[in-house]
Design a protein around this nucleic acid. Structure first.
Length: 553
DNA sequence: CCCCCCCC
């Protein structure tokens, strides 16, 4: 048996292995180990298992184990660990199936040697391929890409016949929530694990997922070759995590940060809106700053709304009527209806908030009615509502043309305290999108898309929120390289290193996985910055963010 | 030696 050093010397990057060669050694990090799947077709029946590997160059390769090999290597090829693999069958990809590598895939044979390694596989190149949601949104339907995002919600699994799916909702600092549909194994296993973790709003690295546009709405789906990385530890992911920590420290719901529509809306002044100089385009949205000077219906900021037309229903004894639709016994629900008096200088206006009232109050209307009816004076939501008076807000409104009221009536679709936005909004949409490296890799059936950021408006690159590790003086070339690229250092590792003071850790994690024990949840928690650390990060982050200048959209 | 990618 070859020693680790010997194996190490023979190691070749995946893309440098000569075609048809059987004499090679690769060193790879496992980013996914799929479930064991049974199959039966006209030719064969049996079981197989798929593993996704990545090497130092960021090249991904799919490995398949069949039948007895699954059991042989059951304690090997574990997610987040590094292995030497030698003497596998490197075959051309089957064009009928998707693959993570455009040309080759690996089959584990009787001759295959697999050995666990202590080596830390660099995720530098691998992490370069990840794009943000706003970059992903520009991709055409069907494009395959790697995404970094923050998990917001996990919906229940839906099973229809043999098909299992589950929707999760993700976001990032500049995007609205986006739905990712997890299929099969991803819905069942990864989805269940994510559900446990969702309150921590983990950062997700979704590898080889696909753009899936339905009815014009941008969405994302997993493929059989996708991988789900939970809390990846490369720099891009840490940057996103730093943003999430800011939001958490501010005790804000990640979903109530200003939406993309809000950020992109044309900014006008309240007099502009009220004097009729703006084009009366139906449905046009305008953004303006104003101070709330009065809440006109503090007592009951809601109404009974017919579920179909949203107009107010009349409830008389046991019959409900929608005067608008002229129908009786209609189904209705309570809906916010908050009327505000706002002003900018001398200019006053009335603004109505329907569902947007939740952004001010902090809970849905049912919760609001319930808690205020129990004890209004002790209800935190009521207090929050009352406290909006005399504060300045950014409003996103549409002008209600159908109102019989001769005064223009403004309906707010979104509202955000200005003090809040100063913290959250960074460089707006122009935040420099770090151009992804041109990997140019293709999956078999579908073109793998690499975004070309032709003319990025570079405002200012954020500094690393985490201090770079000091360069070790006696380190060899590889170590220096790693020190210069802190994104390849596992956070789990760095946390341990900090506590263990210089003891070499054998951990190779590039992310926190959802494979097995519930201890992993604890692991995630332990990795989370402590309050003081996160405060520090926040401050640094904040300073960086406030340095950004706003650029016209 | 292979489930092929779905759905709202």
């Amino acid at each position: 048996m070859a020693t680790e050093t010997e194996l190490s010397k023979q190691c070749v990057p995946i893309n440098k292995i000569p075609k048809h060669s059987v004499d090679w050694v690769m060193r790879v990090l496992v980013i996914r180990k799929g479930s064991v799947i049974s199959y039966s077709n006209t030719r064969h029946e049996g079981t197989f298992q798929t593993v996704i590997l990545v090497d130092d160059e960021g090249t991904k390769l799919q490995a398949t184990l069949f039948n007895k090999h699954i059991d042989t290597w059951k304690d090997f090829l574990k997610t987040n660990k590094t292995y030497y693999i030698a003497n596998g069958l490197l075959d051309r990809v089957n064009p009928n199936y998707t693959s993570v590598h455009k040309e080759i895939e690996l089959t584990i044979t009787d001759n295959t040697i697999i050995r666990e390694s202590d080596h830390v596989v660099s995720t530098h190149n691998f992490s370069n391929g990840f794009v943000s949601l706003e970059q992903a949104e520009k991709l055409p339907n069907g494009a395959i890409f790697d995404l970094l995002c923050v998990l917001v919600t996990v919906n229940p699994i839906i099973e229809k016949g043999d098909s299992k799916r589950r929707e999760i909702v993700v976001t990032n600092e500049l995007m609205d929530c986006t739905t990712v549909t997890l299929w099969g194994d991803f819905a069942l296993n990864d989805g269940a694990f994510l559900e446990k973790l969702k309150d921590d709003q983990p950062i997700l690295g979704l590898c080889d997922v696909r753009v899936s546009i339905y009815k014009g709405i941008f969405g994302i789906s997993t493929l059989p070759v996708s991988s789900v990385l939970i809390n990846p530890i490369f720099q891009k992911a840490l940057d996103l995590r730093a943003w999430r920590e800011v939001i958490k420290a501010e005790k804000k719901a990640i979903t109530t940060t200003p939406s993309k529509v809000m950020r992109k809306a044309t900014e006008v002044t309240l007099p502009n809106i009220m004097d009729g100089t703006l084009a009366d385009t139906q449905g046009a949205l305008y953004k303006f700053k104003a101070k709330i000077i009065d809440i006109l219906n503090t007592d009951e900021p809601w109404y009974s709304s017919y579920k179909k037309c949203h107009k107010k229903v009349q409830v008389k004894q046991h019959t409900t009527t929608c005067p608008n639709c002229n129908i009786q016994n209609v189904e209705y629900e309570m809906r916010y209806y908050l009327r505000l008096e706002v002003c900018t200088g001398e200019q006053r206006a009335r603004v109505i908030l329907f569902d947007a009232a939740q952004m001010l109050v902090g809970c849905n209307v049912e919760e609001y009615i319930k808690t205020t009816s129990e004890n209004k004076e002790e209800c935190m939501y009521y207090h929050r509502l009352v406290l909006i008076k005399d504060k300045e807000f950014n409003f996103l409104v549409r002008i209600d043309m159908n109102n019989s009221n001769p005064r223009r009536s403004l309906i707010a679709q979104e509202i955000h305290a200005i003090e809040d936005e100063a913290v959250i909004i960074m460089s707006d949409e122009s935040k420099s999108l770090t151009p992804p490296t041109n990997r140019g890799k293709k999956s078999t059936a579908l073109e793998r898309h690499v975004l070309e950021d032709k003319s990025p408006i570079i405002v200012e690159e954020p500094q690393n929120v985490r201090p770079r590790r000091k360069r070790s003086k006696k380190s060899n070339a590889l170590h220096v390289l790693e020190d210069e690229a802190p994104n390849i250092v596992a956070e789990v590792q760095s946390v341990r290193l900090r506590t263990k003071r210089g003891k070499k850790s054998n951990m190779q994690q590039i992310h926190v996985v959802g494979e097995e024990s519930p201890n992993i949840v604890e692991e995630v928690r332990s990795v989370m910055p402590t309050t003081s650390t996160s405060k520090k990060i926040n401050n640094e982050h904040l300073q960086i963010k406030t340095k950004f200048t706003k650029v016209e959209s």
